[in-house]
Design a protein around this nucleic acid. Structure first.
Lengths: 339, 339
DNA sequence: GCGGCAAAGATAAACGTTTTACTTAAGGGT
DNA sequence: ACCCTTAAGTAAAACGTTTATCTTTGCCGC
């Protein structure tokens, strides 16, 4: 049961291996009759091109690496899902790796990815700092960085969301409803996108003469809920919470449920990201909607133009994350009472 | 900027390429001094082993293909996430492909996966029928089939959930609470796991002299919600709904929210799968919990023993999916009224 | 002092494909 | 009748590893 190679096909079809290769690739003209014989032979033998051999010879292969912090996070899973579809449409395979938000693992995974000599790489770095492995590779390999971009002026294409505007819009919405005691449920405040969301919220609040508080909940739902519960018990309730990721949204909701807090009657909430479960509730969540499929689309087309050989200056795509106004933000009691 | 190969490293370190290879693999003794020089050289040159070349020579490569219907479905995303972690721990890379529940795409993706000559394959078939491409490969390649298994007695290892028991348990819970008008929110009734869940529910109901109704909602949340809404408007409300997938759970909840149905006061619900968002609610969902990480773990260890060369008879692993009793199933009004 | 042996490396072949350069045969213009 | 071109296909080299086989060197016993 040795694997069937191009040689076997050639023998079966009674031609040379070069002709078989040409018949498949179409790089050189092969008479229709011979093509038919080759295809026939390949079919009967169950021939599968050995991609490793092909890639070794040509040096290129239609595979792109995708590196994300975690597939357990819906945001990244959805992103990878979209990228995978786009890749398939263009005949590319996707090699997935996850860093688990750990810089060492990220570097290791990157190395493994690079060993495949992919045509390109789409990565969501797990920290603000671009790992050295990647930085070295960026000059030769088409790379697109997404979401977690620590620095400006990177030499590669980047796709990000306008986090500052998103934060600002969320805050303004809450302020308009009369809230003055605002809590920011951040995941990890040190991460650039989170920091910008926080800054957006803070800027809007400050402009209204309000100083928001911040609590860091991490990247795990259970733990985040526990931390928020502890915070609430210790510091008292705000009238509105703005979550900065889908995980913190979930953690906040969990904490609310555990503490018997009614939303929006007791506390209002603006969530982050927009998934089906957020609307499948008695009180659908107002949330900042990250345009996941646009992000994927932008990243993919950037990558494709780079792979196509473009040497243009690095582009920085900034997408809007509009607020979806639903029912989880109520008019603050302060306003109601004065009315 | 030609890629740096083993040859360059050999030159830099002043040894032959065979020695470099041996220094890395440790297959033959190489003096510590030389190993040091080789590693040094590799580091300064930024050497990355070319996996294609390696695989071409050895015929094996540490990569396994994973084929699932969709990464947008949390269940599969979580499964892939777990598999990816297990793979990483064993030094394997994962090649992901999605079939989008389309048989033709599945066959195509399978072909693409196989071209990499992976060491193994973990697949969730998108239909009850195993595609021919796969069936042919199963004799030579270690394959583990998960979740969607149409036939018994396959010649490969399979990992499934005891869907019949899961359905039965869900139904019994609802029956115990006094419900008699039960609606099954199925995704696609033709799929084997779904069919078994339905059968489990039906068997339990029939034993209690109750005939459940069934509605098919498909695999998309929006559309499922619309279909359920229409069904409810047309046929009237049951007192309890049992959903058979996480997507139908979401669709049901969406329909409830849209129709202003209160859960559990108006209608009770047993969900399927168990995610954070199900408990992050005022009324946490009772749900059948599929043991995703156990599934992944079982599938992975099956695959590893096969890759290790085991030729034992195919094993069929059946895992329990226990019911998590929470608050979304209320005592039926019928019972309350008589009390 | 010499055969023999072990230790540490080197040489070269092989993996399956792509592709360049070559062969062969047939046709075409003058 | 001759040369030149074109068409269709073939032979062989190359890609970067791994590994079986060969070489060199030093060392041992006698």
């Amino acid at each position: 049961m040795a694997a069937v190679t191009i040689k076997d096909v050639a023998a079966e079809a009674g031609v040379s291996i070069a002709t078989v290769s040409n018949a498949f690739s179409g790089r050189k003209f092969v008479s229709p009759e011979v093509v038919r014989r080759v295809e026939e032979a390949a079919r009967t033998l169950g021939y599968q091109k050995n991609i490793a051999a092909s890639q070794l010879r040509t040096g290129r292969v239609k595979v792109v690496g995708v590196l994300v912090p975690s597939l357990a996070d819906t945001f990244f899973a959805a992103l990878v899902s979209d990228l995978e579809k786009l890749a398939e449409a263009d005949g590319y395979q996707v090699l997935v790796a996850t860093s688990g938000d750990d810089a060492a693992r990220e570097a290791a995974q990157l190395g493994a990815l690079l060993g495949w000599k992919p045509s390109g790489l789409i990565a969501v770095p797990c920290t603000n700092a671009i790992p050295d492995t990647l930085r070295r590779e960026m000059v030769a390999l088409p790379v697109v960085l997404v979401d977690r971009i620590g620095e400006e002026d990177l030499p590669v294409d980047t796709v990000v969301v306008d986090n500052h505007a998103a934060g600002r819009e969320a805050a303004q919405h809450v302020l308009e409803k009369g809230h003055r005691e605002i809590l920011i449920a951040a995941s990890v405040a040190g991460l650039r996108p989170i920091a910008e969301r926080i800054r957006g919220i803070t800027d809007a609040c400050l402009a209204a003469g309000v100083a928001p508080r911040i609590v860091e909940l991490g990247t795990d739902v259970e733990e985040g809920a526990a931390r928020l519960g502890a915070f609430l018990a210790r510091e008292g309730h705000p009238t509105a919470v703005i979550a900065t990721t889908n995980v913190t949204t979930l953690a906040t909701l969990t904490a609310f449920a555990q503490a018997g807090i009614d939303m929006p009657a007791d506390v209002s909430l603006v969530g982050f990201d927009d998934y089906a479960w957020m609307t499948a509730r008695r009180v659908p969540l107002s949330a900042v909607r990250q345009p996941i499929s646009d992000i994927a689309q932008s990243a993919w087309s950037c990558l494709m133009t780079r792979i196509g050989g473009s040497a243009d200056a690095a582009v920085r795509i900034v997408l809007d994350a509009p607020l979806q106004r639903r029912n989880s933000v109520g008019v603050s009691r302060r306003v109601l009472d004065t009315a």
